[in-house]
Simulated scan of single mutants.
Amino acid sequence: MQTDLTYLPPNLPEPVDDGACDHLRGMRMPDIVLRSTAGAMVSLSNIPGWLVIYCYPMTGPAHVPLPPGWDEIPGARGCTPQACSFRDHYQELQQLDATVFGMSTQTAATQETEKERIHLPFDLLSDEQLVFSSALQLPMHYVEDLVLIKRVTLIFKDGQLQQYFYPVFPPDKNIDAVLAYLKEQQ
């Protein structure tokens, strides 16, 4: 089993667009407050300007085993490479006046460990109670006893969804589409 989570194995199955996000376009950000890795409660509907939220299934250190068959689930593998690509382009996102968060259903404590491990300059949000994913009816992975958000990136402006990327593949290239979209809007 591949334990270097920064590496994307060849021949990963590509997810297909199953229409699970078609309802999102134009949606208003619901009045939801989530815990961040900074320990703060973040009110997403009160964030002005551009807001980028990349949702991912799960991430963690190599010593924590991935669920059985993880690499065979289309779109599951690649959370760490996706996060690192947002980290590596964070200054560009800031220059485009975008607030950035990563989000999963993992606890804020688990995410804090990940944030430190890969040196993320932005916070991650915990949707552990599935409040955000339920309100937006996001597509989910159900793996063993885990309920995980499928990889989707949402771009809001002043609380209104402007663009989403789904399915996201390969995950480490998602940042390119996000940056291109934001630059077009300038």
Rank of each mutant, 00 (worst) to 15 (best):
M29K: 02
E112H: 08
L124G: 02
L138Q: 02
K183I: 15
C21I: 07
A76G: 13
E116N: 15
C21D: 00
H63W: 14
F122W: 13
D158Y: 06
M27N: 01
E128S: 11
A98T: 00
P10T: 07
E14L: 07
T107N: 05
D71G: 06
Q94K: 10
Y54L: 05
G19P: 15
Q111K: 11
P48L: 09
T110M: 13
P65L: 07
S126K: 00
L96W: 05
P30M: 02
F122E: 08
A83W: 03
R151W: 07
D97A: 06
G78I: 02
Q137G: 05
D158T: 00
D97C: 12
Q111F: 09
Q111L: 15
A108L: 06
A108K: 09
L96M: 04
V168K: 03
L179C: 09
P13Q: 00
Y90E: 08
A20G: 14
I155C: 03
Q95V: 06
E184A: 15
F165D: 04
H23A: 11
A38Y: 01
P61R: 02
D97G: 09
C79N: 10
V52D: 13
L93I: 12
L34K: 07
D172H: 15
H23S: 03
L182E: 03
A40G: 04
A135G: 01
A180P: 00
K150G: 03
D71Y: 01
I53S: 06
L5A: 01
E92S: 12
S134M: 03
P48E: 14
L12G: 00
D158Q: 07
P68A: 11
T113C: 08
H119R: 14
S43P: 08
G39Y: 00
T105G: 04
V178M: 06
L154D: 00
R117H: 06
Y164E: 09
D31G: 10
D97Q: 10
H23K: 08
D88F: 09
M103W: 05
P30A: 09
F132D: 02
P15W: 09
N11D: 15
